[in-house]
Simulated assay, not measured.
Amino acid sequence: MASIFSKIVNREIPAHIVAETADFLAFLDVSPLVMGHVLVIPKKEVDYIFDMDDESYLGLSLFAKTVATGVKKAFPCKKVGVAVIGLEVPHVHIHLIPMNNVNDMNFSKAKLQPTQEELAEAAAKIKAVL
């Protein structure tokens, strides 16, 4: 069964996409830790990041670096945090999270519930600087 992220790749469900290549996709997390929280994925469905072939793994990392640069410009912060957890969706994904303190990366805290309009505005800010 296709993951929710594969359904986003196939445009079966909507997402606030901020960047895309032939092999990778970046879109806003709909329940972000902070505004500007982006998920970066390979379009090919792979469950575990270290099961990716080397070329795809390196490509994903370089794509994430480019997107992180845009996130930092659009959402000024001290750093863009990077997390790979992968338990909630069986599809490789990298979290890019604008952070000003360590608590911004605390996955046990309550998530934000932004409106679709707020997400659209956030996506537009990132796309504008990429």
Rank of each mutant, 00 (worst) to 15 (best):
T69Q: 13
L87K: 11
G59S: 09
E45P: 07
P76R: 05
G86T: 10
M52Q: 01
I13V: 15
Y48S: 08
M35C: 01
V67F: 11
D29L: 04
C77W: 12
K78E: 15
Y57V: 00
V67N: 06
T21P: 10
D53K: 04
P98Q: 11
D51H: 11
C77A: 09
D47N: 12
I85L: 15
I13E: 09
H95V: 10
E20M: 14
S61E: 10
P32Y: 00
V89G: 08
I85M: 15
P76D: 11
V40R: 01
D51Q: 11
D51T: 09
Y57C: 02
L62W: 07
V80F: 10
V67R: 02
H37T: 10
A64H: 00
V84Q: 14
E55Y: 04
K43G: 10
P32M: 08
V18L: 11
A68D: 05
D51N: 12
Y48G: 04
S56R: 00
V67S: 03
I97R: 03
P90V: 02
P14S: 14
I94T: 14
G36A: 01
I41E: 01
T21M: 11
P32E: 05
N10H: 15
L62V: 03
L28C: 01
I49T: 02
L62I: 04
E12Y: 10
V34R: 06
K72W: 08
S31W: 10
F75P: 01
L28M: 03
G70R: 05
H37D: 00
V80W: 12
P98Y: 12
P76W: 02
